[in-house]
Design a protein around this nucleic acid. Sequence first.
DNA 1: GATCGTTTGTGCTAAATTGCACACACAGGC
DNA 2: GCCTGTGTGTGCAATTTAGCACAAACGATC
Lengths: 211, 211
Amino acid sequence: MPIDIPDVVIDRLPLYYRLLERLEAEGRSVVSSQELGTELGVTPAQIRKDLSYFGRFGKQGRGYSVHRLADELRQILGLDTRWRVTVVGIGRLGRAIASYPGFEGQGFDIIALYDASPSLVGTEIEGRTVRDVSSLREDLEREPVDIGIVAVPGEVAQEVVDTLVNAGVQAILNYTPNRVQVRTDVELKHINPVLFLQSMTYHLKRQRDER
Amino acid sequence: MPIDIPDVVIDRLPLYYRLLERLEAEGRSVVSSQELGTELGVTPAQIRKDLSYFGRFGKQGRGYSVHRLADELRQILGLDTRWRVTVVGIGRLGRAIASYPGFEGQGFDIIALYDASPSLVGTEIEGRTVRDVSSLREDLEREPVDIGIVAVPGEVAQEVVDTLVNAGVQAILNYTPNRVQVRTDVELKHINPVLFLQSMTYHLKRQRDER
DNA sequence: GATCGTTTGTGCTAAATTGCACACACAGGC
DNA sequence: GCCTGTGTGTGCAATTTAGCACAAACGATC
């Protein structure tokens, strides 16, 4: 299997997968790239090409078996196993993340929560006890996790990320507004709603000024 | 001023702007594209080219005036005015959004909160009273907003978005896992952390299997 | 079993995006 | 005022990404 599959392609697969899950739930058995495309707002050709990196899952004249394709994507994306996640930073955002049912439902087990505040440590969130972030490092030695979600104040983001990465965490989802650096072999994604808003205002301003 | 500036460029500007703000706060007066690039993990040439779409802000041999460039970007991105925002859906996520200081600090005024649950309507969050979503439509007529942040359950996302758009809201930030459709002249961004995790597991699986 | 309407997989082309590399400009020292 | 070191702005080339368009395949129908 070729190693050089573009990242843009990988980033689209979860989108396809999510739609297929919905169609599966609706009881649809077959779907065409045309239909997937209109639903997602992308061209059918792009979907076919993206999928063709991984194999030939469709049947000419018919389309794709919804169940079969969903299954293949599960395999490809590694969603056929469960992944161990830890959340560091249990402020309002961290709590929202820890309580969000969408993670567990998709195979992501939030196995531990950490915070630095003594008033939070020891409290329970959705049946999980908040632990002291000072024991993060040693805890990870005993019970490693695959993914770290970081929702601490921006100033300590890099520090927390370093701790996670040094303890072997391979993927970081950074909810803080600060960009952090990691080794190139560690997966890293940033979620910063302000950046989204700021690129939207660019267009809003132009719409407002005229046209 | 040319209309056809690529969206990829626009999406990078807030990134540059955020770094410049930090440098401004640190008291730096001049910075080179080289330095901006290493800090952000992009090539200096890309930064220079991106900026050149909008004008010539640098000085050869010196670099960019931090204050001047930050100012220009504020202008370009429309961050020299305040923007009116409403949040619909005041569950755990909506509350985290409503309380996040990063929005107000960047010129985004959250002027109203809405929810459908009778137990929430009337309660106060950060000094704002949660209103009933059934009055959203008429409220928007009286006090319009520029941006709608949607944090309702996925099933009603499209419905809420339609209400917002029909009432003249020009930009939507959708926190629900459901993709929604809007007119092409409305700005729309999706924030779905699960999609991020799912593309990360693709790489995690490959790292694990070998290499 | 031939024909027809569909839809895939993909070679090839077009478009978008990135980045090299250099002329030109500026500041500082001599 | 000339030289030197540095860093911008940009023409151009390379690379990446998207998408057209068609042969091949499949199922249904007669």
